[in-house]
Design a protein around this nucleic acid. Sequence first.
DNA 1: ATTATATTTGACACTTATTGTCAAGATAAA
DNA 2: TTTATCTTGACAATAAGTGTCAAATATAAT
Lengths: 103, 103
Amino acid sequence: MKESKTTGEILREEREKKGLLLRQVAAMLDIDTAILSKIERGERKASKEQIIKLAEILELDEEALIVQYLSKKILYEIKDEELGSKALKAAEQKMKYNNKNNS
Amino acid sequence: MKESKTTGEILREEREKKGLLLRQVAAMLDIDTAILSKIERGERKASKEQIIKLAEILELDEEALIVQYLSKKILYEIKDEELGSKALKAAEQKMKYNNKNNS
DNA sequence: ATTATATTTGACACTTATTGTCAAGATAAA
DNA sequence: TTTATCTTGACAATAAGTGTCAAATATAAT
């Protein structure tokens, strides 16, 4: 059963491919090395702004990274909820409805 | 264009139908009257525990209320996001995948 | 109109999450 | 083994969430 890579794993791989040090990338993000280390190992999560900057720095697909970031956030909200799946579907419905009426 | 009722509106209507005072229901929830007032007017959001108790007290469909509660929470996470819709779909996919492999 | 009761409002306090720094310890490279 | 890099955990600062309280408003009863 092949698991897909986590965001952190991708970030680390790409950083190393480019031969960049944690220190260097962290400086570009204006945070301490420790945080970036933790982000790459999945111990902390990056903010949306950090994701965007990382996509630039590492030349990754920004949209894909953000979608992954947001979907993780969503799943976190409902991770222990029996009704999570129903809630997701309800959210999609409401979203459709709003788009129809606001745009 | 008929808007559906907010959770707060439903809670207020049902409380009044039952002839209960804010003070009384707030006491059952063990919170200050002010908070319940704000919940009913949508100025604050109820916790999940409060939603459950309110469903009992007001004899409302607990599952429906919780689904509404969770879906609001989800939508709040992506409310300003262009990619919100894609993120929702991605979350559903991941959820399906996990269910397949964990259960 | 006055009083009594119910609700709303806003300022504040407490708690928990989030996001960061720092420095010491562990790893790996030279 | 020295040097550079990365990891770890204790801590600090800030933001978000959740509540109290009391004064202001609104509603209802006499």
